[in-house]
Design a protein around this nucleic acid. Structure first.
Lengths: 223, 223
DNA sequence: CTAAATTGTGACCGGGCGGTCATATGACCG
DNA sequence: CGGTCATATGACCGCCCGGTCACAATTTAG
């Protein structure tokens, strides 16, 4: 009995030797990071991973299931990151929360750039199917920002007359693209590495750039 | 002798009767608005427009040339809009300039939603070729915002210690998605109409929503 | 009315795709 | 050794694509 959150590879996939599985995974993630869903090619993944096309269909039901599995993988990585970090006081006000979000969201994107790219494409690119999980995550993301803002207005860390829709739009839009901005500023190359560890110095620089943005969001372009 | 800015349909295309050309154009624009380049299908355009596939290749060199032509069309629409609007004093400070940009950029997107969508995909989606015009426009867009900010810092309409990169990022990101936000707030449907005229009331509502965003950018979330 | 030039057409080509399946390979077990 | 079962394989299917081309239809010119 395998408890599953709906989408899983077949048992055969889990019987793979770890290094074969790793090879396959890297090929798959890179494919779905480099191409959006319709353009990503199972044939290419197989060629890259060095397996026969028939083998793929012993591991996964179809193309869609592979993508959903990759997204779940990303979620688990993110959960692991959440668990590994001590979050600051959740009642420290809006900008404290926003900084936590930055640490998690962007930290994840910077450490697992390819996996993050897969998720980004699945969220904002074209999918020829509707999936509950993806729709739910999209919704939840935006609602999280909205909730943070409302809470901030309630606890006084934000002014009370904010246009909530506008603020939610600005914050979520900026945060969606934030990791790309930071990668550009740090001179990091998405495709160069599969997982990467930031040096303390790099992380400090990322924080500096984030501070610049935060400053704008806090006090605006004038004051 | 036909002067051309590099990409043009063949003469045969211009010899088409206006209504045939119109039918074809609508089909083509909708196709490239609904699908990004690799997924957009010439065959489908032909079927929709009711012409033979061979005919298409009497009008255009290939798929790429069609897209580039559509983008040029969008540019001309935009130029027409610029010409039709009296711009406020360009020395009225940063936020005056930003408001002009809003009027033009978003006005165009709201009036020609499908054509704007084509351009958006070409700019931010995946293209299997590099094109100078597109690259140039992308670059120019971001640089325009950067220039506005620098000017604003110089003339005192912005505080002088702004993180320029951060501000450019925030402004250009927000403006890129702005028309989608407004369409959602106004309850407009992209695909419903090919060109649309906003009522005065709708335009006023769009302005109100834009003001909400502008307020955030001006004074931030706190003050 | 005819001849020349322009335009319309859809069968066809090569290629890539997602997905299938009969068969081959090899591990495990008595 | 033999038999059973899980896995690996790549030829194959049907589909759709961008693009071509020989030919048919139509317009234009003389």
């Amino acid at each position: 009995m395998t408890a599953r959150s709906h989408i899983m590879p077949k048992q055969t996939y889990f019987n793979l030797t770890p290094d074969k599985r790793e090879t396959f995974l890297v090929a798959a993630i890179n494919e779905f990071a480099d191409h959006d869903y319709p353009t990503a090619s199972i044939s290419r993944v197989c060629k890259t991973a060095g397996i026969a096309k028939g083998s793929f269909y012993q591991y996964f039901e179809d193309k869609k299931d592979l993508l959903l599995y990759l997204i779940q993988l990303g979620l688990e990585e993110k959960k692991a990151l959440v668990a590994s970090i001590e979050l600051p006081d959740p009642n420290g006000g809006f900008f404290e929360s926003l900084r936590s979000t930055f640490t998690l969201q962007v930290g994840h994107s910077l450490q697992h750039p390819r996996l993050a790219e897969v998720a980004h494409r699945a969220f904002y690119g074209a999918l020829p199917f509707k999936d509950e999980m993806i729709e739910g995550l999209k919704q939840a993301g935006v609602e999280a920002y909205r909730g943070m803002i409302q809470k901030g207005m309630a606890d006084g860390s934000l002014r009370p007359d904010i246009d909530i829709d506008a603020a939610t739009f600005v914050i979520s839009t900026v945060f969606t693209e934030l990791s790309r901005y930071l990668e550009k500023q740090l001179g990091l190359d998405n495709k160069a590495m599969f997982t990467r560890e930031l040096t303390d110095e790099q992380w400090a620089e990322a924080s500096r750039h984030f501070d610049g943005i935060l400053r704008l969001l806090e006090s605006g372009l004038i004051n």
